[in-house]
Design a protein around this nucleic acid. Structure first.
Lengths: 126, 126
DNA sequence: ACATGTGGGTTACGAATGTAACCTGAAAGG
DNA sequence: CCTTTCAGGTTACATTCGTAACCCACATGT
């Protein structure tokens, strides 16, 4: 996936989400339809964002009757990559440190903790 | 702390770290001494970054014989704030989701998991 | 006395971002 | 036919960021 992912900006991310949710490649019309509900971007803004995403090679445009846009990175890849970057920047590269910090900062309620404890058990037998 | 924290850029963060590590307010000379080892920034770059941090009100400059710089946000505040922003952006605001994702992505070795399980136990009795 | 360094202040300049206007040509509505 | 809409493409423009140059004034080494 390469570090190019890192360069998806916040606005661009909105567009990626539409593509990720769709699961199929989409023509601009569809992207617009979805986005005009969420943001009140002008069409040309969306076009600019798509163009930039293509330039960054995280989206591929395929010419048919009209262009169809398809993400070249998955949402999971992007999320994991971004998370790792945060971990590197703020937690000395240790995911454990991040989790410990979350535990200490009351971001998790009892129910969360219970669920996670279960997950930790499951992940144990490997 | 307000959302101003969000606006600390990567370069600025380097400067913040120096201040955080120091624990006291520092004059430019000290900041330079520390930074010239880590980065090879020109003095004027450091001055620019300090100026921007002051404008953003995350650093306070106090005039004595010379200016002394002191952080107005703690590293912990900053880290927690940034982490929360990532969680909001990528994990629907759920810290639990983030942790679950980390568990699923093999970013934690057995030792980490063991330690964390202990932490989860400790955090239990509240 | 003079070059150098240092602090404070101002200005600069290219890349990235957020957001959009504008132009052209085809399609579609009426 | 004429107006509107929309795709594709180009250009724009303010803000932020990374990185620094430049100017002035004072202190200091030699």
């Amino acid at each position: 996936m390469s570090k190019l992912v890192s360069k998806i900006s916040d606005s661009e991310l909105q567009v990626m989400r539409v593509l990720w949710e769709a699961g199929t490649e989409l023509p601009i019309a569809e992207i617009r339809k979805t986005l005009e509900v969420r943001s009140d971007w002008d069409t040309s803004t969306i076009k600019t964002l798509l163009r930039r995403l293509c330039k960054k090679e995280v989206v591929l445009a395929t010419k048919k009757e009209v262009f169809y846009y398809k993400p070249l990175v998955t949402e999971k890849e992007y999320n994991e990559y971004s998370t790792q970057k945060l971990i590197d920047k703020l937690y000395s590269g240790s995911a454990k440190n991040l989790i410990a910090s979350l535990l200490g900062s009351k971001k998790l309620d009892d129910e969360d903790i219970e669920e996670l404890r279960t997950l930790f058990k499951v992940g144990d037998d490997n």
